[in-house]
Design a protein around this nucleic acid. Structure first.
Length: 353
DNA sequence: TTCGTTACGGTTGAA
DNA sequence: TCTTCAACCGTAACG
């Protein structure tokens, strides 16, 4: 149960083992780095390990995204309908063909490349399971009215991820982050996003969120006030705050922003969970694990605001903004470490080296 | 002192 | 429904 409240690292920061840092913190790391703050100072100020800071900044530099990669899931299947169709064709033309010959032909005819060609055992399995009855065409065969399942799968209520299937290979494997500049269509339901979301969040993309919510008058804002929140809300906070595609309010992301705003509105009716305390208050970091104060992160509110000195945000047209936090509504999407999860057998076994 | 790297224990979700 | 597997996470420690 203690895990529900997270753990405290050597710097006094709170984290949930196995779970990404909340997006506001990730965002703040990037913001501070862009302001010229050294990673070691960011690490100390935000109480995040320097390895983590280094990793997030490296990822941001590489991809332009502050978002964590997609956790869990499996590799995209290499035995696509097209591949199966070719295998079937080869088998029909030459019933005595070996699996390794099929594999070679898939490569030779550029149906697959060396990275996605099915293994011989996979081909054998296809021959056995899918092409055993050659008279029966695949349900996914060209011309069939039955379409293969869409690769877009909900990744949980508020935690969608890039969909490399839809956007080509990435450097991070099946669920890696998306290259910069990618934008995805929104598919925001009130409780589910497609796995594909724009990992190409730039800082400015993300920063539109608060503006939209504030403009709706949906969330309480408390300038300079230190909100408190239980760590069990951490995950929901991070997810909900940046749950959808391109919340930019400028240009490119605008098409999707509307749908995302609807989402925000839908959830804003739920109890609001606010997040952070100012960095300056970190000195009094509470030891009690049941209630933890977070760094309160300033966030620009879209076009018209610029980063001000000291990490706050300043309206381009005038007054300096208070560094109040990113406030989100968690609704029924509370996150708990372990979340009452039933221990698995694998949990009790020694890990492989 | 700073920072990149990596082992580790953990979570997650498709198959 | 449960298990397996392979992805990801952040921390801590090392160099």
């Amino acid at each position: 149960m203690e895990q529900a409240f997270g753990e405290v690292n050597q710097l006094g920061g709170v984290f949930v083992n196995g779970r990404p840092l909340p997006n506001p913190i990730r965002l703040r790391i990037v913001e501070l780095a862009q302001l010229g703050i050294r990673p070691c100072d960011i690490s100390r100020q935000l109480r995040v390990s320097h390895g983590c800071v280094s990793k997030i900044l490296a990822r941001y530099n590489e991809t332009g995204s502050i978002l964590p990669g997609a956790i869990g899931g499996s590799k995209p299947r290499v035995t696509t309908p097209t591949v199966v169709k070719h295998i079937r064709d080869y088998k029909q033309r030459d019933p005595g063909i070996f699996a390794w010959e099929i594999r070679d032909r898939l490569l030779a005819e550029a149906v697959c490349d060396k990275y996605n060609v099915p293994s011989v055992s996979s081909i054998s399995r296809i021959l056995r399971n899918k092409i055993g009855g050659l008279s029966q065409p695949s349900q996914y065969e060209a011309g069939s009215s039955v379409k293969p399942p869409a690769p877009v799968v909900s990744y949980g209520a508020l935690y969608a991820y890039p969909n490399p299937l839809a956007h080509g290979p990435t450097t991070k494997g099946h669920n890696g982050v998306m290259p910069p500049g990618m934008a995805l269509p929104a598919m925001a339901g009130s409780h589910g996003f497609p796995r594909s979301w724009p990992s190409s969040y730039t800082v400015s993309d993300i920063l539109g969120f608060r503006t939209a919510v504030e403009q709706q008058g949906l969330l309480p804002m408390a300038d300079g006030a230190a909100y408190t929140a239980k760590v069990e809300e951490w995950g929901a906070m991070g997810r909900a705050a940046f749950a959808g595609p391109a919340q930019s309010v400028n240009g490119i992301g605008k098409v999707t922003a509307e749908a995302e705003l609807k989402f925000s509105q839908a959830h804003s009716a739920l109890p609001a969970v606010s997040s952070f305390v100012s960095a300056s208050s970190l000195g009094s970091y509470p030891g009690a694990p049941s209630q933890v104060q977070y760094v309160q992160y300033g966030a620009p509110t879209g076009p018209g605001f610029i980063a001000g000195p000291g990490g706050g945000w300043q309206a381009q047209h005038g007054g300096r903004l208070s560094p109040h936090g990113v406030t989100i509504s968690s609704g029924d999407l509370h996150f708990k470490a372990m979340a009452g999860r039933t221990p698995r057998v694998s949990d009790m076994l020694p890990r492989k080296s």
